Computed example of a mutant assay.
Amino acid sequence: MKLFAGTESSWSLRALLCMEIAGIPPDLHIFDLSHPQSRRELKRLSPTGRVPVLSDGDLIIYDSLSITEYVNEIKPGLLYSAEAALRAEERSLCAELHSGFAEIRRQMPFVASGKTVPGALSAEAEADIERIGIIFAAARGEFFRGETPGAVDAFYSVMAYRLASYGIHFPGRAGHYQNALTEWTLFRRSLSGLCPPVHPVCGP
């Protein structure tokens, strides 16, 4: 499978992590999203012209959440729990991250290098951070469901890293989970994999 990803793309990183957790390391193609030629090439590959995009033969799957669900169908039980109630909880958390926390995204852009300039945050962003702290405090161990990583960890590790890069560190159980995610070997390796020197377009 080919995964078309982008530099400084938190969405791409989540998709890559999910594939790695499921034991499907992709043929990774990285686009420099700051370059107009890259964006023109992406419009040829993706209906939305955005990353990530997964190519599996003639099948094209776009959007990080859709890619996660597709990978879970191929390797069931690795990204989401086998128990229906737990699986529903995990899907809800992934959907919340996927569609929510708009003020954090707006005021605290993801920077792969982690080199950011923290600034004053709005009340809405503070509310987003409070909600994330509640989610993190519910983790059952170093990973959300305990000892094994899943889709929730893939999605929220990127957020944990984003917040830490802006000097946001949670106390207690939430902080333990945040630290575990930011130091997670697979997260660090995937982050490095998406941040090598790239040509303006790294196509198929």
Rank of each mutant, 00 (worst) to 15 (best):
Q107N: 04
R105C: 00
F110C: 07
P109S: 06
S92M: 15
G146T: 05
A120L: 13
A112K: 00
D128V: 01
P109C: 01
A120R: 14
L93S: 04
P149S: 04
G119T: 05
F110V: 03
E130D: 13
A125M: 05
A127D: 12
F136D: 02
Q107A: 08
T148G: 09
I104R: 02
I104V: 14
E96P: 02
A112D: 10
I132Q: 07
R106I: 09
S122T: 10
E124T: 13
T116E: 05
A102L: 15
V117E: 15
A139I: 01
G141H: 08
I135R: 08
R91P: 06
E126Y: 00
L97K: 13
P109Y: 01
C94R: 08
A137M: 04
G114Q: 04
A127Q: 12
K115F: 11
R106L: 10
G150F: 10
V117N: 13
L93G: 03
E103K: 14
L97Q: 15
G119C: 01
V111H: 09
C94K: 10
E130W: 10
G100T: 11
L93P: 09
I135L: 13
K115A: 14
S113D: 10
G114E: 00
E124A: 15
E130C: 04
G146C: 04
L121W: 07
F136G: 02
A120N: 13
P149K: 03
A138Y: 08
R105M: 04
R106K: 15
G100E: 05
R131I: 00
A137G: 07
G133C: 01
A138M: 13
R106A: 15
P149F: 09
I104K: 06
G141C: 08
E142G: 14
P149H: 06
G133H: 02
S113R: 04
F136Q: 02
R131M: 00
R140I: 00
A127W: 01
D153F: 02
P149E: 11
F101T: 08
F143V: 03
F143L: 07
V111C: 14
G114F: 08
S113M: 08
F143R: 08
A120M: 11
A138Q: 14
A125R: 06
Q107D: 05
A139C: 13
A95Y: 11
R131C: 00
I135C: 06
S113E: 14
L93Y: 07
G100A: 01
M108E: 06
L97M: 15
I135N: 08
A127M: 07
E142M: 13
G119W: 01
A138T: 09
E96W: 14
A123P: 02
R105F: 03
I129E: 02
G119E: 05
G146H: 10
I134N: 11
Q107H: 07
I132C: 02
A139T: 08
K115G: 00
A138K: 14
L121P: 01
M108H: 03
I129G: 05
G133W: 03
E96F: 14
T116D: 06
P118L: 03
S122L: 02
G100V: 04
A120Q: 13
R131H: 14
